[in-house]
Design a protein around this nucleic acid. Structure first.
Lengths: 164, 164
DNA sequence: TATTGTTATACTCTATAACTATA
DNA sequence: TATAGTTATAGAGTATAACAATA
């Protein structure tokens, strides 16, 4: 039995290839979500590149600035970065003098992390670039749908989590 | 100068870590987009797993079914999969008897791809699982915002492309 | 015994260069 | 010469196991 296509539900046409029919794919959320994420990340990665920051570097800097003295494990939990992978990221940031590791007094196993003045300066520039990026995204979506989009994405992000 | 937070714009709270302040991150689209994409893909991957299909396998099957006789290069363009990577995917699908490669008569360099009856059967089951997945996503978002979400994602996906 | 940071390692995805056979 | 498929390989990003220091 051939699956019928409810043509009315299709959003504005998305041509990915050279006239190739991508089947029901152009009516599936996951497909759009992936394309949107790739496009948005491409723009954001380019915006942060002049500062030598990858997305993970940037998000880690943001969290450290917002939580002075935080230990690595907590950052990993907040950003869903595995502890071993975080070590490499912090190594890079520390080598560049953007972040400082110091042994925590209360628990000498952990490292208290702080952003340095140099790090704060870089982060401020990166934040401006991010704001410009966000403005571009916002313009692409259209002002009316903006709040609805963020709300919808937030609900999707909570999919697997405990339903409050 | 400290950046001010326009608290009114924040969508419903998203707690990622154990009470860690994630800074301005919870007001950036990219962050939500990533979390949403990860959550949605996790659900979809789980839905397709019983059929032994990864996301790429599934999307390739869909395109082949919609375009009998298509060559590999065209699939790659439509799905943005590099030709070398597609070879491995098709290898797997062909080994399982879900897809058949035959030398194209018109151009003997290329391979005409067709879905087999076995492949069509698997795809039909996978489509049902995908539909159930989509229903879950839709329920999480809420019916009112659904069309707006797809529309917004489609616009974002066209970010870097030529503005029509 | 459990936890923090670390090292080493592996697995998935994606990307590039170069080969072959056809055109 | 250009293209389709292929091979090999390399690079991100992410994941797990095990160890030393500390609790």
């Amino acid at each position: 039995m051939k699956k019928q296509r409810p043509a009315s539900r299709a959003p504005s046409r998305l041509v990915t290839g050279a006239g190739v029919d991508i089947g029901d794919l152009d009516r599936q959320v996951g497909f759009f979500l992936r394309l949107a994420q790739v496009a948005v990340f491409k723009d954001l990665v380019a915006a942060l590149e002049p500062f030598g920051l990858r997305l993970t570097d940037y998000s880690v800097l943001l969290v450290i600035e917002a939580n002075p003295g935080l230990k690595q494990q907590s950052i990993g939990e907040a950003l869903r970065i595995q502890r071993p992978n975080l070590v490499v990221i912090i190594d890079g940031l520390e080598r560049r003098g953007l972040v400082r590791r110091s042994v925590a007094r209360r628990d000498r196993r952990s490292h208290a992390l702080r952003i340095t003045p140099a790090g704060a300066a870089v982060l401020e520039e990166a934040n401006a670039a991010q704001a410009a990026h966000e403005a571009r995204i916002r313009a692409a979506v259209g002002p009316s749908d903006w709040a609805a989009l963020l709300e919808a994405l937030a609900r999707l992000a909570r999919l697997g989590s405990s339903p409050t």
